[in-house]
Nucleic acid binder design. Structure first.
Lengths: 203, 203
DNA sequence: ACTTTTGCAAGTCAATCGTATTGCTATACC
DNA sequence: GGTATAGCAATACGATTGACTTGCAAAAGT
């Protein structure tokens, strides 16, 4: 056998090449030959690592989610001291917005996935699990905030979590369409958060 | 010449065939042959009405927006008496959600457009104008609500309009992914509206 | 040292795409 | 009633697609 290659590492490199193409032309516009060229490898080599285009897409989806989670986690851990739930939520939402080129690309690829997932049960199930996990994380943070008195007790953590995520998703779309600026979208999120924390009657 | 045909009417029929395909397989997955078959015509006939696929897509985008506006207008005009700004906003937002099959298809096509528009300046400019018009309409309603004392004066109509639309866009995505139910999404919108109308200190 | 197997390149394949071309038919117009 | 033309059908074209096949070089295992 020739030199043993780190299979997963190669697959990640190919997945990242796929993103760059998909961000510019959509998932459908990314041919295997394009992706191979972007990754600097041959079509044959790409097919050695992914049996089909679908396999490549599914793997890339998992990888992009993993990286997004890593970015969010790193951002939170970089915060000084023990961050409050409010800060954790705020930083997480900010990381979800397409602020820089990396998250912009990530969001675009996710939208491409979204279109596929609507009519693909396997992808849709996967996406549903992701949404559930994200909402649960948000709801947990909100429950802690309620316990600490930062959020009024009459606020339902599950509903507020859904509202926060939906709001950020919608704002992300507006940013991507170059209608809102990234800073403007972040300001709107902060506005919503300011009302959520310090509910009616508290401040 | 043969019988003179209503050009626009034919183009609308073809556009609607395009939606049905695009809703199921995305805009890229809708070939001219598919659309022609769905419309019950030949490929040659389709090409007689649209010079290129891009022409067809652009026309269909304009048509779907027109129909969406008509649906919203009809829904509001069907309301008894003189509706308050709150009711107008609520019904408009509800019509934006993919509640039935028609609006679900419409939203899916819009997402397909969205993916294209991100990297197509002509489509993006068109979309930006649509967003601007919608936000202006919402802001106007909110200004009226502030004037009538239904919304606290410290609420900025422009920001609140942006929040409402972004929230609904995000919830629409969740509904399409079959994560939230249509009723659940509508309940969340009502929850947000209930806080907007009757701001802190009023009720 | 020889075998086996991995890594990869190159070419091929049928299918499908958007577009262009050609020609017939029916009708509106002079 | 001749003729120009709109409406439409049919076919062909070159390009591109994802998938498949074949072949070979290199290194790991024995």
């Amino acid at each position: 056998m020739p030199k043993r290659v780190d299979h997963e590492e190669r697959r990640r490199q190919i997945a990242e090449a796929l993103w760059r193409i998909a961000a510019a032309r959509g998932l459908d516009g990314a041919s295997l030959r394009d992706v191979a060229a972007e990754a600097g490898i041959s079509l044959g080599q790409l097919q050695h690592y992914f049996t089909s285009k679908d396999d490549m897409i599914v793997f890339a989806l998992g990888h992009i989610e993993h990286l997004a989670q890593q970015r969010i986690r790193a951002r939170i851990e970089a915060l000084p001291g023990a961050p409050t739930p409010r800060v954790v939520l705020r930083e997480t939402l900010a990381e979800m917005l397409p602020l820089d080129e990396a998250s912009r690309t990530g969001y675009l690829v996710q939208v491409s996935y979204f279109v596929r997932a609507v009519n693909d049960e396997r992808l849709r199930t996967h996406a549903q699990e992701g949404i559930a996990a994200l909402r649960a994380f948000f709801a947990d943070q909100l429950k802690a905030a309620v316990a600490q008195g930062e959020v009024a007790a009459e606020r339902d953590p599950d509903r507020e979590a859904a509202l926060l995520i939906a709001l950020t998703d919608g704002l992300s779309a507006a940013v991507l369409m170059e209608y809102d600026s990234a800073q403007g979208a972040l300001a709107l999120i902060d506005l919503h958060l300011a009302r959520l924390f310090s509910g009616p009657g508290s401040a």
